[in-house]
Design a protein around this nucleic acid. Structure first.
Length: 809
DNA sequence: AGGTGCTGCTTACCT
DNA sequence: ACAGGTAAGCAGCACCTG
């Protein structure tokens, strides 16, 4: 029989002495299908003398009574050279690692006797190996040929697969999406689940175990045990393909698992009818539900989206506020406790709980296309993709390419290697000190994808570095002793080149489609995936934990980058243009000719520069602005880099680096600085700005400013006990700890400065423990409002005394 | 005891 | 568990002054 299905999930199991790959999928009609494939895990061995090594390995495994299937000899590319490898086929899932450990004894470099040099690819998990070798992407359609099979798995039918291939198909099958969320109540340090909500298309439910006159979507059960049982029942009945949570990996599922084990409830949520498991990852474990895709949106938002978000906090409330324009129902923890303990307003609590699931569902609806597209681009399962960082996405993309091109994948560095790598640093981008003060008519030019373009243009790749062609016949890296081959294309560089080309094609196709059409949207998510991967590769070169680590490559990218931005500045000045500022790949120019039009001068300059630039390097116009301000440094003489504000012809502000965009400044000071910038940049209304500051101070002194606008956010970047210096956020966190609250590494401390005795730190209090009455207005005037305002106003010669109206004149 | 000025720890930003 | 370049606040300390 032959079946076509959309791949959802895959894993590997041991059945007797066999290794089986399980593919879980969905047919176009919506049937659940499982395909099982026999699989032989394998890894590669590089040896001085492959024939001799083969014998030695066989003898060694014989004496250690380790079973393998066979050893083949095979040619593979290692760092640009074709070499002969031994391909060792194993029997069971973990055998590649185990057998590799045995063979390690034959490595000469470890003092062994044999001719083995190194082993490769022994850590790639079997299901990933299978997908890589069969050229199957993370979320794509496959066609499987095989025999029908009886299984105990939760599927409409199963198939013992013989053949598999990926098929190109645009449409998705009917996928069922379900989101969930829990509310907990802490008692003697133990979390109890008091409520659980679920949200799907035409489905909403809240489970709880206290009675009231509830909405019809609330189901009252007897107790927590029954709540958990009901949860399992609903999952199996509704049978979602994608289960979505917000923080499910680190909160909901750990709590659910803990309570389920306490109450002896079996958490059989998976389609393999086994209990839910956590798979270990770097920082936190992930809750894996076999056969379904558990997407924890927090991971994706935190790893991929957060740099592009405005919000200070990555809470469900803040993120959905920004992305959906919808917020949680307002209810603080105290209210929640009271609702539960005193049965007060329990209805509101059910609505609150349900709303969380609704928001999670809607966020999933918005973000899932990007996750699935990314999964297709990178070629890993959506479960894995949704939890990856930029570096990991780049690495798995390269891994897939390497397998395609029969190249050996470099080994993950050992811990000592990582430590050693971290000791090397190199020079990065060039930053020009800005011309001080206000400027009119600024054009911002920047290099399109500077580092990816450099990698592609100059063939920057680990194997092309300092090639045998010699310096003179190659691309020489300015200001360094490195060069890159002009003859043979490198692996990483050609991959980046392909990414850029594919993206350009997609952008062309996008131009031919309607802006609001589905096709346009699909093309857009696809080009964004390619952009993310391409941009991550430079960082990956310099990342000590990366398989394709190459410090010289990263260093060369930066060196070329510095060369071209400096050249651009020089050329601009030669053409009589004023360069106000430059940072890494951008250049701010001002038109010094009052009689000439800026846009024409810019066009002329861009044409001039682009005709000289090599390869695919291109300088483009990012935008024009009618006015901009650059601010003096606080701590040293001169003008500050990376801190400025621009205003365009529609009076839109672009603010970078200033207090306005920093979360460790209170909202009041940030909003005030934005207002001052608007007054100044729009029409230089200095007096109005001063008046505004004075009014704000007055409001503050009258306690008319809410506490939330005085809150400062700062992250604990390490364990609380390891701080050498107790700053305000650390002091506030210490107080939280003493008051019995949970304090953890990575958490965002929300605090405000109160009046009283001692240093600022001593007066920093967690906001949850204080009211507006406790606030030290003087601190907020002197350390927040005045500095934020003066930063801008000092450019217009406003002094502190003038600002506060304390001057006698 | 209280002020002053420097250094280093720390965070968050820019590209 | 992504890089280097940069600004800036506050603690902590040495030192000075009276």
């Amino acid at each position: 029989m032959k079946v076509e299905f959309f791949l959802l999930d895959a894993d590997c199991i041991k059945e007797g002495e066999r290794t089986l790959i399980r593919l879980f999928g969905k047919t176009y009609e919506g049937s659940n299908v499982v395909a099982l494939f026999e699989h032989e895990p394998y890894f590669y061995v590089l040896a001085e003398n492959p024939q001799q090594a083969k014998g030695e390995i066989e003898d060694l495994l014989e004496t250690e009574k380790v079973k393998i299937k066979r050893i083949d000899k095979i040619k593979r590319d290692l760092k640009g050279e074709k070499r002969e490898f031994l391909k060792v086929f194993c029997q069971l899932p973990q055998d590649t690692q185990k057998i590799r450990d045995s063979i390690k004894k034959l490595e000469k470099k470890r003092g062994g006797s044999g001719s083995v040099i190194e082993e490769y690819e022994y850590t790639i998990s079997p299901y990933r190996r299978f997908l890589l070798d069969e050229k199957i992407d993370g979320s794509c359609w496959v066609e499987v040929e095989g025999e029908p099979l009886q299984t105990r798995l939760k599927a409409d039918f199963a198939i013992a697969g013989k053949k598999i291939k990926a098929v190109e198909k645009l449409k998705l099958p009917p996928l069922k999406l379900l989101s969930f969320d829990i509310e907990t109540y802490e008692q003697q340090g133990r979390k109890n689940i008091i409520m659980l909500s679920l949200w799907g298309k035409d489905f909403k439910k809240v489970l709880t175990y206290q009675k009231e006159d509830f909405q019809p979507w609330v189901e009252v059960v007897n107790d927590e045990k029954q709540l958990l049982e009901k949860f399992v029942e609903i999952i199996n009945q509704y049978d979602p393909d994608i289960l979505v949570s917000f923080n499910g990996d680190s909160f909901d599922f750990p709590v659910i698992q803990e309570r389920a084990s306490q109450k002896k409830v079996k958490l059989t949520l998976s389609r393999d009818r086994e209990e839910m498991k956590f798979t270990r990852r770097a920082r936190i474990s992930s809750a894996r539900i076999k056969g379904r895709i558990h997407i924890d949106l927090f991971n994706f938002i935190n790893n991929i989206l957060s740099p592009n978000l405005q919000t200070e906090v990555l809470s469900l409330d803040a993120v959905s506020g920004e992305l959906l324009g919808d917020k949680k129902i307002e209810m603080d923890y105290q209210e929640l406790l009271e609702a539960w303990q005193k049965k007060k307003d329990l209805c509101k609590l059910t609505e609150y709980c349900l709303k969380d699931s609704e928001l999670t569902f809607k966020l999933a609806h918005l973000l899932l296309p990007q996750i699935l597209e990314m999964s297709k681009t990178v070629g890993q399962l959506p479960f894995d993709i949704s939890r990856m960082t930029y570096g990991q996405l780049a690495e798995w993309y390269l891994t897939r390419k390497a397998v395609e091109m029969q190249k050996i994948i470099p080994n993950q560095p050992k811990w000592e290697d990582i430590k050693k790598r971290k000791t090397f640093t190199y020079a990065g981008g060039f930053v020009k000190e800005p011309l001080a003060g206000l400027h009119e008519n600024i054009a911002v030019l920047d290099f399109r994808s500077l580092y990816p373009s450099i990698i592609a243009t100059f063939n920057i790749s680990p194997e092309t570095l300092n090639c045998s062609c010699g310096r003179e016949n190659s691309y020489q890296v300015p200001g360094t002793d490195y060069w890159f081959c002009k003859k043979e294309k490198g692996f990483v560089s050609s991959t980046v080149e392909e990414l850029i080309q594919k993206r350009a094609e997609l952008k062309q196709r996008m131009k031919k489609t309607e802006k609001d059409s589905l096709e346009h949207k699909i093309l857009d998510t696809r080009q964004l995936s390619l952009k993310i991967v391409a941009n991550a590769i430079y960082g990956m070169f310099a990342f000590a934990g990366a398989k394709w680590y190459c410090r010289e490559c990263a260093e060369s990218c930066a060196a070329f980058g510095r060369f071209f931005i400096k050249q651009t500045i020089q050329e601009a000045e030669k053409e009589g243009l004023t360069v106000v500022y430059a940072d890494t790949d951008s250049c701010f120019i001002k038109n010094p000719f009052p009689d000439k039009e800026l846009s024409k001068e810019v066009d002329k300059f861009l044409n001039h520069i682009n005709s000289k630039l090599p390869g695919i390097l291109e300088l483009e116009l990012q935008g024009t602005y009618k006015r901009g301000i650059f601010i003096p440094r606080e701590t040293a003489p001169g003008t500050a880099k990376k801190r400025y504000a621009l205003i365009d012809k529609n009076d839109n502000l672009l603010i970078r680096g200033l207090e306005t965009v920093r979360r460790d400044w209170c909202n009041l000071a940030k909003q005030l600085q934005r207002k001052v910038l608007t007054y100044i940049l729009k029409d230089k209304k200095v007096d109005e700005a001063i008046q505004y500051v004075r009014n704000t101070i007055e409001k503050l002194r009258k306690k008319e400013i809410p506490l939330k606008d005085l809150t400062i956010y700062e992250q604990l970047t390490k364990p609380l006990s390891t701080y050498k210096q107790i700053g305000p956020h650390v002091a506030a966190a210490q107080k939280m700890l003493r008051r019995g609250k949970k304090v953890s590494e990575g958490m965002l401390v929300m605090f405000a400065i109160t009046s009283g005795k001692g240093s600022i730190s001593e007066r920093a209090e967690p906001v949850e423990d204080i009211t507006i009455q406790d606030i030290d207005e003087n601190y907020y005037v002197e350390n927040q409002i005045v500095p934020a305002a003066l930063r801008v106003l000092q450019v217009l010669k406003v002094t502190r005394d003038k600002l506060l109206g304390e001057s006698l004149f």
